[in-house]
Write a protein that binds this DNA or RNA. Structure first.
Length: 848
RNA sequence: GCGGACGUGGCGGAAUUGGCAGACGCGCUGGCUUCAGGAGCCAGUGGGAGCAAUCUCGUGAGGGUUCAACUCCCUCCGUCCGCACCA
């Protein structure tokens, strides 16, 4: 047998070129076939190249794309580059190369790697967020936000990373540390462009009902937006018409409210400077609080501190009692109104009152008598719900009954209203860096902030000598006078450009729309848009990405899409959600279950796996490694198993001429069952069904294992009988081999293509129709009936699938071991019969 | 603290959703391929008892429901992830 060994390095290149030449992966605008838009998050093209984690999700979606194409869908499966970002900028600073040069090099490398994996992206639609033709529209979106009052400039205390010298969004701060570099984040007051995502908070929650996202993704988004229903209460200032508004979800505790606590930064303090007798002390406390980083402030063990605002009191609208006003740093300025009313039913309030001797009162009774006593005696704090007391005519009501009643009672007096509050905050959109989209705004002393005229877009990044951010927090762009100084678009007077750039999320807000156009240079946004490219492809049918983007990219892009939809920049017919379905992949960890990282030296480079084992092996391995949505450690030995599997197929097909039939042998069956060529066909059709179903459910691991089972059966027939099946004249039938190669092809496309050709079949394997399984064939005529006694398996017999209980009993009771067990010792009390599955004899001891 | 996921052989993991626990792969053991090698082939492989047929125990721990529980319910232990002074 002088056949060549399986040599993926040789065949894979060849087929990649063949696919490219045939344009088979190109999405067709205007096609009559049903569309299917599959999207996988585009990567940030780092200098490290593709990660095996990228390969996992790309291969998974590639498998779906390939299957959908074979099923006759007009598939859009695009790829591009989210290329603005700090690592590129840092590299550029270090090496003195322009970031665009670095980007070009990195994207070339990523593209090469993706192609080497046989991923079926439509490369003709490739986009790059740093391409001026692309970011022209990123800037256009910003202008529309500005025109619709959703972009505004505000001086706020931002999260400032002292190492990266950059302002961070709340979402980018992890445990008080910079998401990128891990440096402790500081607070800094800075003028920033802000985007009013909060205006969409309710719809971003509500519309989750319209989409098919993994439940955990929905939950995370909801939690992040953090909607809570409550009330806004007015506490009037003693001796004044003024009042302070407080948001609460626990208005049922209003009768126990004995003091008010403001956040240290609350503007009330500035407003009543003159009235506050100890203003110096209060301002000093504010300063200290500001300098306490988030990580220290949220430390649970930290002692509670606070300062009373002497000379100021407010009136509790429920009790009419006078209440002192304090400030404490556990009250957050950004949530609610930045004020809480304090009582004995909140741990922090309780602790604070105890510490400073502020009077406390309770008004909620816990069910448990002991806790009720302790709570009443102010020995411990009760935070739960219960029955009201000390609450006038609301006494006896439960917390949830009381809330709406108290609100309407106070509302009538003009002191309360229903209110929904969100944790979500407006999106800090400014970055003081070079490598980002310039914010297309101009500041004129006379006219204020003016939008760059749309016809002047894009505002291109100018060439600079230094990309280094400055310590003052100014963007490096501010140093380029020629670029900064412009005419005001309104009064034509001297004005200056905004030198901040956009965050790296800006470009990914709308990239799924860019792909709908065959060429980015033809792309166009406009108001009252009815572009058929949008309505042909949108919404995205299936979007896969990382869990880490759930509260960032996924939320942002849903918001921006809704905005574009509202202003008519995308046709209404698409609907208000960009992604129909969202799934998420698990990370690939290093061997031993630790994270892959350069510092640990356990990073697996896909190139080396492709070189040593081949792309198909890598693909099959990454699908077989474990459940797609689960984190999984890399195991180099497992790669070998996938390689063996492919090699086995290669040998099976090429060792023989194409035989006609094969007997069935599945590893679990005895070899005596051989003989039914029908059985082998049956196994094939079962496999076709299983693989198809599993791909849709993203159960790639079990899809691969069912392919393996089929191949094992095939291999046994060829190798372990007295004579190979094909020598006897019955191997795998030609047509069945075709069907098998077709279902294998999404997983191992190169090998399938090669074997398809070598077996003498016409055309490209990946262009064939996805096989249909034969329902009748899959239907089992005979089943293995489980025979149980008292729920324990005692025997298994093969019987006709339609067997009745009577017939089954008759057969089973004749079996020696069953007969003995039952008739000798016990008496049958009851028989449970599950048609097609099992028969169970429930017995009682004869003695009893 | 809150929310979510999870716990099955030496390892990664299967189990039609209440009906054969351990599919498939790795590893290991034995054998075959008239040299060697393995990324080839065959067989075996949860623990215990037995020459064997077979018996028995077994899905983090304990309890419950059921003819029947990896699966459902309760209590506890443990791991991972997300959020975290959110009024």
């Amino acid at each position: 047998m002088n056949m060549a060994k399986y040599n993926p390095q040789k065949i894979e290149k060849k087929w990649q070129e063949a696919w490219y030449k045939s344009s088979i992966f190109k999405a067709k605008n205007g096609s009559k076939n049903k569309k299917f838009y599959l999207l996988v998050e585009f990567p940030y093209p780092s200098g490290d190249g593709l990660h095996v984690g990228h390969c996992r999700s790309y291969t998974a979606l590639d498998i779906i794309a390939r299957k959908k194409r074979m099923q006759g869908f007009n598939v859009l499966f695009p790829m591009g580059w989210d290329a603005f970002g700090l690592p590129t900028e840092n590299y550029a600073i270090k090496k003195g190369v322009h970031p665009s040069v670095v980007t070009k090099k990195n994207t070339d490398n990523f593209r090469r790697q993706m192609k080497s994996l046989g991923l079926s992206f439509d490369w003709s639609r490739e986009i790059n967020t740093t391409d001026p033709k692309y970011y022209k529209w990123t800037q256009w979106i910003f202008l529309q936000l500005f025109k619709n009052n959703l972009a505004y400039k505000d001086k706020i205390a931002i999260n400032w990373c002292p190492k990266d010298k950059i302002g961070l969004a709340n979402e980018e701060v992890i445990n008080g540390k910079c998401e990128r570099c891990g440096a402790k984040v500081e607070k800094r007051d800075k003028e920033q462009w802000m985007i009013k995502i909060t205006k969409y908070a309710d719809r971003l929650i509500e519309d989750l009902n319209l989409v098919d996202y993994l439940e955990k993704i929905k939950i995370q988004q909801k939690d992040w937006i953090g909607e809570s229903h409550g009330a806004l209460i007015k506490f009037s200032l003693e001796g004044s018409e003024e009042f302070i508004e407080v948001f609460t979800t626990r208005i049922d505790t209003i009768f126990s409210g004995t003091f008010l606590i403001l956040s240290p930064g609350h503007n009330f303090i500035d407003k009543y400077k003159n009235k506050i007798e100890n203003i110096d002390e209060v301002l000093k406390y504010r300063e200290t609080a500001k300098n306490t980083s988030d990580i220290d402030r949220t430390n649970q063990d930290k002692d509670i501190t606070g300062v009373e605002l002497k000379g100021i009191t407010v009136k509790n609208p429920a009790t009419n009692e006078e209440m002192p006003v304090w400030t404490a740093d556990f009250v957050l300025e950004q949530y609610g109104t930045g004020v809480v009313f304090a009582d004995a039913h909140d741990k922090r309030d309780f602790k604070m009152a105890k510490k400073y001797g502020i009077p406390l009162r309770t008004s909620i009774k816990p069910e448990n008598e002991l806790s009720a006593q302790k709570a009443k005696n102010l020995e411990e704090c009760f935070e739960g719900e219960g029955a009201l007391y000390n609450s006038m005519h609301f006494d006896g009501l439960t917390s949830s009954e009381a809330r709406p009643k108290i609100i309407s009672w106070l509302r009538e007096k003009g002191y309360a209203e229903n209110k929904i509050s969100y944790k979500l905050r407006d999106w800090v959109f400014s970055r003081q860096h070079y490598w980002g989209e310039p914010i297309p705004m101009i500041f004129c002393v006379k006219c204020g902030w003016q939008a760059v005229l749309e016809k002047n877009l894009p505002v291109e990044l100018p060439k600079v000598k230094k990309y280094q951010p400055t310590d003052t927090g100014e963007s490096p762009l501010s140093a380029i006078e020629k670029w900064v100084n412009v005419k005001c678009p309104k009064c034509k007077g001297p004005a200056k450009r905004e030198t901040d750039t956009m965050p790296n999320w800006a470009g990914s807000n709308w990239y799924y729309l860019a792909y709908t156009m065959p060429k980015i240079s033809n792309f166009k946004f406009q108001i009252s848009n009815s572009a058929k490219e949008f309505s042909q492809w949108m919404p995205v049918d299936w979007y896969n990405g990382g869990m880490e983007h759930t509260t960032l990219h996924l939320l942002y892009s849903r918001f921006i899409f809704k905005f574009l939809w509202d202003i008519g920049a995308v046709p209404k017919i698409i609907g208000a959600e960009p992604y129909k379905k969202r799934t998420s992949h698990g990370m690939i960890l290093g061997e031993g279950g630790i994270k892959m990282s350069k510092s640990k030296g356990n990073v697996i480079n896909p190139d080396s796996v492709v070189k040593q084992y081949g792309a198909d092996t890598l693909r099959v391995y990454e699908m077989f490694i474990g459940p797609f949505e689960q984190m999984i450690p890399w195991d180099i030995k497992g790669v070998v198993g996938s390689r063996r599997f492919l090699e086995k197929i290669y040998n099976l097909v090429l060792k023989k001429a194409i035989p006609a039939k094969i007997p069935t042998v599945s590893p679990s069956r005895t070899r005596d069952e051989v003989g039914a060529e029908e059985n082998f066909k049956k196994l094939l059709h079962k496999t076709i069904k299983k693989v198809g179903d599993d791909i849709e459910a993203m159960k790639f691991n079990t899809a691969v294992s069912s392919l393996m089972e089929f191949v094992n059966a095939w291999s046994i027939a060829e190798n372990s009988l007295d004579k190979p099946a094909s020598d006897k004249g019955y191997g795998l039938a030609k047509k069945d081999l075709q069907e098998f190669l077709k279902i294998l092809s999404p997983f191992a496309p190169h090998l399938s293509e090669e074997l398809w050709q070598r077996a003498g079949f016409k055309g490209l394997c990946c262009a064939q129709k996805w096989p249909k399984y034969d329902e009748k064939l899959i239907e089992e005529k005979n089943i293995l009936l489980i025979v149980q006694i008292n729920g324990k398996v005692r025997d298994k017999i093969e019987v006709n699938a339609g067997i009745t209980q009577k017939q089954a009993e008759e057969i089973v009771l004749k079996l020696e071991k069953i007969k003995n067990r039952i008739t000798n010792i016990k008496e049958v009390e009851k028989v449970v019969f599950v048609p097609g599955k099992l028969i169970n004899f429930v017995t009682i001891d004869k003695d009893k």
